[in-house]
Each structure stands twice: as structure tokens, then as C-alpha cells.
């Protein structure tokens, strides 16, 4: 089973990289891009019997390692295929 974990900086945390990327896009003429937040994406291939079990495991992995709770939050998608 595949779990996708999206880690992003919390909304209250300034993202200097995202801001720089947004400025670069503006230089390319994409004025419509108002803001960019840069994050991390993980694909976990999990040996689990149900989507719930996979989600629980991915969530634990995110809490303990993939995200730093001081500055980051995360969201999980589980794909059964």
C-alpha cells in the first residue's frame, strides 16, 4: 500500500525559499502567482492490510521523523493500488 506524506511549513512560519521561488516566477512573468510555500513529499510503500492501518503507520512516521512539529505540519493520502 502506498502512503503519500506532504510536509509543509506551518502557516505561521516564514518560508524564505517559497518567497524566493515566488519572486523567480514573477520574474518569468507569472504575476498571477500570489504566493509559494515550499514543502517535502514522501512516498511510503507500506506492508499493511488496510488503508487505515497504512494511514496510522504513516502518521506515526510523520510525527516521529518526517515532519518537525515545531515548524511543520503534514497531510497524508493513502492509495490502495
Amino acid at each position: 500500500m502506498r502512503a503519500r506524506v506532504f510536509v509543509t511549513l506551518k502557516p505561521s512560519v516564514f518560508d524564505p525559499q517559497g518567497t524566493t521561488v515566488a519572486e523567480a516566477l514573477h520574474t518569468l512573468g507569472y504575476a498571477a502567482v500570489k504566493d509559494v510555500r515550499q514543502g517535502k513529499y514522501f512516498e511510503l510503500d507500506i506492508d499493511a492490510t488496510s488503508a487505515d492501518e497504512a494511514r496510522k503507520l504513516a502518521s506515526e512516521a510523520a510525527d516521529k521523523l518526517l515532519a518537525n512539529p515545531v515548524i511543520e505540519s503534514y497531510r497524508i493520502e493513502v492509495a490502495t493500488s
Binding site: 516564514f14 518560508d15 524564505p16 524566493t20 518537525n68
Partner: peptide, 16 residues
């Protein structure tokens, strides 16, 4: 910081 022996975290420098 990552080991939890001191509080807080590091972000990329604001100058990038």
C-alpha cells in the same frame, strides 16, 4: 534541537 535537548527549530536563513 532535533534531538529535543534544546527547544525550537531552524529555518532557512531569511536571505536564502
Amino acid at each position: 534541537l532535533e534531538a529535543g535537548m534544546l527547544p525550537g527549530a531552524m529555518l532557512r536563513n531569511r536571505s536564502v
